[in-house]
Amino acid sequence: MFFKKKERRVFLDHATTTPVRKEVLKVMEPYWNEKFGNPGTIHRFGVEAKKALDESRKKISQILKCHSDEVIFTASGTESNSLAIFGFLDKQEENGADFKKMHIITTKMEHPSILAWFARFERKGIKVSYIDIDKEGIVDLKQFRKLLTPETIFVSVMCVNNEIGTVQPISKIAHIIKDFNRDNKAKIILHSDASQAPLYLKLDVHSLGVDMLTIDGQKIYGPKGVGALFKKRGIEINPLLAGGSQEMGLRAGTENIPLVVGLAKAFELAENEREKESERLIKLRDKFIDRILIEIPGSVLNGSKTERIPSNVNISIPNIDSEYMIIKLDAKGVACSSKSACMGRIKSASYVIEALGNDMGNSLRFNLGKSTTEKDIDYVVDMIKQSIK
Rank of each mutant, 00 (worst) to 15 (best):
I237N: 02
G37Y: 13
G96Y: 12
K283P: 00
S337W: 00
P223Y: 00
N314T: 13
L368I: 08
A119L: 11
I188T: 10
Y379D: 01
N95G: 07
T107Q: 06
F11E: 07
R280M: 03
H14G: 13
D13H: 10
S129T: 14
K51E: 14
K328S: 11
K389P: 03
V128G: 04
N161K: 06
G217N: 12
L364I: 11
G243C: 09
K385D: 07
I327G: 00
A266D: 02
A270P: 03
K370P: 02
E110Q: 11
K142H: 08
E23K: 15
V160W: 05
E151I: 00
H206Q: 14
N272M: 09
D290L: 02
I220H: 07
S82K: 12
W32Y: 15
E277D: 10
I292Q: 01
K4T: 04
D290P: 00
K219G: 02
R251P: 04
D98W: 13
D378I: 09
A15I: 13
K224H: 10
A49S: 15
L89F: 08
N38A: 14
R308N: 01
V128S: 05
E271S: 13
Y221E: 11
I173N: 04
A75D: 14
L263G: 02
I294P: 00
S278M: 01
D378Y: 04
I126P: 04
E34Q: 15
L12R: 03
S61I: 12
R9I: 12
D132W: 01
E273N: 15
